[in-house]
Every structure is written in structure tokens, then in C-alpha cells.
Nucleic acid binder design. Sequence first.
RNA 1: GCCCCCGUAGCCCAACCGGCAGAGGCAGACGACUUAAAAUCGUCACAGUGAGGGUUCAAAUCCCUCCGGGGGCACCA
Length: 855
Amino acid sequence: MKPAQRGISVADQKVKDAQEFDFAKIQEKWQTIWEELEPFSTSNPEDKRPHKYVLDMFPYPSGDLHMGHAEAYAFGDIVARYWRLQGFNVLHPIGWDSFGLPAENAAIERGVDPRKWTYDNIAQQKRSMKLYATSFDWDRVLHTSDPEYYKWNQWLFLKMYERGLAYRKDSWVNWCPKDQTVLANEQVEDGLCERCGTVAIKKKLTQWYFKITDYADRLLDDLNQLEGSWPAKVLTMQRNWIGRSNGADVYFRVEGQSEPITVFTTRPDTLFGATFMVVAPDSDLAAELVAGADSQTQEAFARYLTEVQKKTEIERQDAGREKTGVFLGRYAINPVNGEKVPIWSADYVLADYGHGAIMAVPAHDQRDLDFARKFGLPIRVVVDTTATVTGAITVVDESASVDFESINPETTGIALVGEGRMLNSGPLDGLSKQNAISKMIEILEKGGNGKAARAYRLRDWLISRQRYWGTPIPIIHGSNGELIPVPEDQLPIVLPESEGLDLTPRGTSPLGGAEAWVNVTNPIDGSPAKRDPDTMDTFVDSSWYFLRYLDPNDDTKAFDPAEVEKWAPVDQYVGGVEHAILHLLYARFITKALFDMGYLTFTEPFSALLNQGMVLSGGSKMSKRKGGVSFSDEVRTHGVDAIRLTLAFAGPPEDAINWEDVSPAASLKFLARAWRLSDDVTSKPGALWKDGDTSLRRHTHRFLADVPGLAESLKFNVVIARIMDLVNVTRKAIDTGPGGADPAVREAVEVVTMALSMFAPYTAEDMWQKLGYEPTVALASWRKADPTLLIEESVVCVVQVDGKLRERIEVSPLAGADALEKTALELPGVIRAVGDRKIARVIVKAPRLVNVVTE
RNA sequence: GCCCCCGUAGCCCAACCGGCAGAGGCAGACGACUUAAAAUCGUCACAGUGAGGGUUCAAAUCCCUCCGGGGGCACCA
């Protein structure tokens, strides 16, 4: 609190303000009333209103809410309140994504029980949300860390396991040395653990995976359905992440071995230019091949493999780095020309993409060229990129004869990756790239040497975590290593108490140390067995939570088909762009899997998505720590409504907000100004609007007609601008127009109040009451615009000569084109501007514009 | 390196299917009220749309090139 500049006058002022618009008092008053009324409950089965499902991404309960939450929840709440005004029964639930590392780390650092830490934070956030006037249905709250919730996580796991979508494999995984747990591919950003920023390393471990790659095509293709309803950016990111490439698989026989090697290539047209082969050093294939080589080669390979495995993901991904590799002493046979090509192993080939092996075409691939030049391997050009080819075999342009030596990859070091005419390629000679690809696939398929194929960047979703605070995996390991799913009727497998457990990250799950918990009997034969000690990635929890809200208290099933039919999919989803891939991809995947299992009738969970922009202060994310303003401070000084209004008014919702650019004080001032209008309405409810001032009514009804379109296209900033405009016009009508007793003034103020209730619920409730209505304005009905009031009395018609503005005339909105043209041509300004030039034509867009075009 | 989005008053932002560049706000100037100030009410000013070219009767809007900002992908065959 700032010290009073001039003691007495400031104190006086405070008293005066308090009598006028005291937001704190209004907040307190309405919170109590809302608690009693529960206006946002959706549990009445008799409710006949149509449905909407508006969902905010649920928060992780670390500490109190911050400005980022405030922004997202403001937008979700505006949408929910908008649809309620439009007569919909709106499901707008909230819950907590309450499993996860921070709770566990707090436990380790401060000795707090993760449960207590989590649920205390939830209680705090819940209080803040209620103060923040979010219109959530508080009867549907869920916490993913409740056994009542994670029981169904375990159920989901079992369903995935039944369908072969959950499986274990021994593989190289991303490992965070700090958190001492594995990470999914999606959780490694630029080689760093996305949670703590530690450099991730690779470990070979047996882990549980969800087979998301089975859904790669559908996850990619169904994005087309979301075009226009999801941010283009998110669609692009998901497409990139899935990374589908079309090409071919080619089978290479290996000398002295019966099993052929399969390689994936996007350029089967260049097969005649393949002069060596490369396999990933950390692949099984490399190990098999080198096993058949001499001991010197084996030693060299072993040394190389060790070296490669020491590298972090960051080092490996450095594209500029020098190529390394070893010859494996083995040869493969190129199936189209019978040539013997040496097999090398190098770490620029990845074990888990395609088949972990490539055909190297150094003349036409930069990576292969770099490798060939370093190790002296042959380079053969098979595409003449100086020639242009169109159609099947027609060479169109050979005149652009560039001197071949000037572009020879062997000397320039630049691979010829462009289009061109095939050469040195037998049956492909003369063809264009596209035709050569098709032809080669045909040849391969005919000869049984390959087939058209696709490869994906997407990898299966690693879901095991070696941590305590998560959902136990419902699998029992028998003494012979057999995997036994826990019978459904034994769910949930409840997490043991953390007391007495060592939660310190040690690379294996702390649950392994809970003797009484982990040791069980084999449900099949009663022999001693152990529970799987790992817990699930918390993204499993959030991959289906939107279904659990439909009936969060049902302990007989995860979700009810009838409720799903009624509410789902989500009509509007709101959340941060940081989940563009992770959560949104997983939720889409699980939705499709549940669809295939027959539990759902739709394949996309979120029909529309809004990513709110970030709230920045001083160029970085707003946080109290950095000495900036905090959410709770801002709420204290300006009130909830002013903060909500400020966030929504700042600009388009997806744009970032610089706190320095906005003014919560101005928002508060505006709210007081709007609020004062309701004091100046002196007519009673039920006043006959049609007797009111027509000019003001035109404004009001134009507003009623325009706002729904603006709100539905999420242009909240424009909606607020329009409310401000209507407030200004109404103020003028009261002070210098027809006066506060005019029914049109009451009509306008009622409309302002309704519209304002989306953004500033407290202020709007208070206005509604002052207007003589019972609570709550949140359940009021949006009025339909009267079409007769939407027609202006007169409009301004612009008259141009050759595109230049010459005259403006007032005309009837119904004026016809011919009449307008005639009038326009007689205007002095037009006659002057035309002069003695001839009129070529006259363009009329009645009733707004006439353009006289001269020759 | 490749791909996507965005550049409009001093600032944040509007502008429908191409049709008068301005809805709203911040900051500013002036006026009314006041002994004065705050609050309130009112009035006003400010850009030709990042630059250049093209299409069109007409371009902030469509196309091309460049500049500036933001984001995504990048040893994925």
C-alpha cells in the first residue's frame, strides 16, 4: 500500500469511492450468494437445454494460481458464460492433474508427505478459483491422484494391454539423470529433460510402451478435420511430430547370410546410385552383422559402439559434426544391379527409425556424401539435375548445359538433391524423379525385392516411470518372468503410504522397496510374485480425464456411454500451447483407441481448441519471484472483474500480453462507469422498450446482432470494445439525450449487464440486482435483435471518381443501383473531377459506394 | 538451412467476401465541475497500413521480392 500523499483528502476520497463502486464488497456479497444458488450445476437430469462442453486444461497443483492460469480460465469462463446466455446447459468442469514429480520432490526436499503437499495446494487453488468467479460445476471435481480416479487409469491400461496396445520392450530409452527416471520422446526437448532441463542420456531398459505408432496415419489424417477449429500452429507441430515420409522398403541380400536387410528410402529412384550401406551402431542388426566378421573388425566396432553410447542426444543431433563410422567387413547385394556394396555402421543412422539401416546414395544425399568423402567410398551420379524433365520421358530442356564438373558432388562436396533426369539407371534412364520413383517401386515389387512403404518420426509412447507419485501399473510379474494382468475386480491397486519409503531417486521405483505392497501371490497359481514397481507417466492420467468429468463419482465404470453421448466431444478446449504435442497427441490417441474398443462414437476429443497467449512482464513470464506483479496482488488492488476484463480486452486471446501495455486500473474505471449506469435507470422492469428512443435502440440491437458472431469467433477484445461503446452511447442518452427514464435506456443497460456478465460477473450481478432483477444474470437469456431496428435510417454513400473520394451523400439504405448512379453523376464534385473525360463505366455497390471510372 | 504466422496513430488493438483506414482502450492536450485537486463528464489531435513492385474500377486485405519480429522443424534416410 502506498502512503497517502495528502493524508486527509486521500482518506476522504477512499470513503467516497467505497460508497460508489467497492469491488471488494461486491465480491464478498456475490460469492456468498453463488455458493447458495449453485447456478452452474449441470446435474439436473430434467434440464432440457441443449448441451455444450467447455473445458479448461486442468492445472497441476504446484502452489497458488498465477497470471497464466488466470488468463486461460478467464477465456474458458467467458465461453462457458456466453453459451449459458444463449440458452445452453454448459458443462464446465475443473479438476487437478495431481500426480507428478513436484509433489515427490517436495517430499524429498522438505519431508512433506506428497499427498498432503498436493491436497493442500489443491485447496488453495480451489479457493482462488472461486474468488476468480470461474463458473465451474463444483460437483464434478476430480483429482487424478485419488484412487477413485486412477483405478480407471489402471482399467485403461488393462484394456490397452488386452488389445496389444500396451507392451514391454527392451530398448534404448531417454533417461533423466537428475529425476532418475525414463522420459518419453515427447518429454525431451533439444536433448534436455523438459521438466528439469538436465541433459538426457540413453539407457537400455525394459519398459512399458503404448503403441501410438499403430495410430500414426489416423493421428495425421484426422488433423484435417480440425483445420480451422484448432490453431494452425498446433496442427503443423503435430504433423511435423508424426513426420510421415512416403518411399519404399528395399531388400538387400547379404553375402554369407540368408536373412536380407531391409532399408527404407524416400528416394528409391536413386537405387542405382547406392554405393554402400549403413546400419545404426546400436541396432541388433549391426551386432548380428559384425558377429560374422573377423575379430579385428569386431574390436573396432565394439570400440565405436562404446564411443557412440557415451554421446548425449545433444551431441548426436549436432548436424554440423564430422561423420564417424566403421566398416563391418560385410557386403550386401544391390537387388537391381547385383552390385556388391560394403556395409558400414555409423551413428548418423538411427536404430529406431525405418529399419535402422539405409542404402547410401552419396551423389544425392548430403549426409551420405559427407560420409563417402570422409571414408573414400565411391560416388555415382544417377540424376542429371541440369536437365528438366516433364511428363513420362520427354526431355524438355537440355540447353541449360551446365558444365558437369562444376557441380560434381565428389569435388564440390554438395549433393545433388534436386529434380532432374535419371541416368546410369538402366530402365529408369530419362525419367523424371516422380516417374522414376513409381517405376522403381514397380520393379522392386515385381522382383520381390521391395515394396512401397512409409516411415514415421513418431515413436511409441514410453509410459513407465521409476517414481512414487503416480498410478501403479496393474501387472504382476510371476517368478518365471510371466506377465499377469491384475484382474479388473481387484482394482484399484492403491499406492502404499509414502511413510517409511525411500523416495530418493535411485533409478528404480521406490515402490520396489514397499515389501508388503510389492510382494503378492500369483493370482493364477498362488506362487510368490511381485507387482510391477513402476508408475505410469502422468500424461496417461490426462489422456482421458475429459471423459471422467461426465460422471466423476461413478465407481462402476470409467465413464457412462449415455453421458458421453450427451456431452462429448468437448466443444471448446482451452489451454496453453506447451501441450501442442504431448497432451493433445496422447489424448487424441487414447480417444481413437477407445473408439476402436467400442466405448466412444467419435474419434477426436476436442472439436475446437484455443491456445491463450502468455502473460509477460518485462519480456518474460510474469512471476512474483522476479519482482514483478503477481496475480494475487493484482486481484487485491483492482479486483477480480478488472483483472478478467483486462486480460480479455488486451487483444486477441492467442496473442501474448505485455502487462506493461494494459491497464487494470482503466478496466476498473470502466467497470465503475458501467455500474453507475444501473443507478441512473429510473424506469421499472417491464418498461415498454418499443416506446423508447429509437436511436439508442438501434445501437442496442446492432450490438445484440453483432456480439454473438464476435464471441463465437473468440474475439473477446472486440466484444468488450463494443460493450464500452454501448456504455458510452447510453451515458450520453442519460445525460444529454432522452434521460434515465426512457425505456430504451433500461433496455441498453440490461443488455450491457448481460454482456458484461461474461467478463465481469461480480459487477454484472450487482447491476442486475440494481435493475430490479433476481439473481442471477448468468442465467439470463440473450435477447434477439429486432431486425427492423437493424436497418439504418440513412447511410452515407461514398462517391469516387477513378477511385478517389469526391463526394459523400446521405441515401436510404434501400437505394437502388440505378438511382444511386444517376444521383452520383449529377454531383458537382463528380462533374468537376470527370471534366471533359469520357466515362468508361460506373461501379455501384449499393448503398455504400459509387465509383465513376473515366477512360 | 526448411516451413508457418505477424508488421495499421506514441502504445495496445479494430476494420465482414477487396469498397470512406478507426470500433474500443492507454498515454496526451483542452474544457466543464471545484477555492484547489482527485473523481466524474465532455471535446480534440495524431497513422495512409514495414519497404518496393504487380493484379484490380478499387488493396491494410490478393500475388511476388525484400526488411523486421515471433514460432515450429532440422543427421528421421
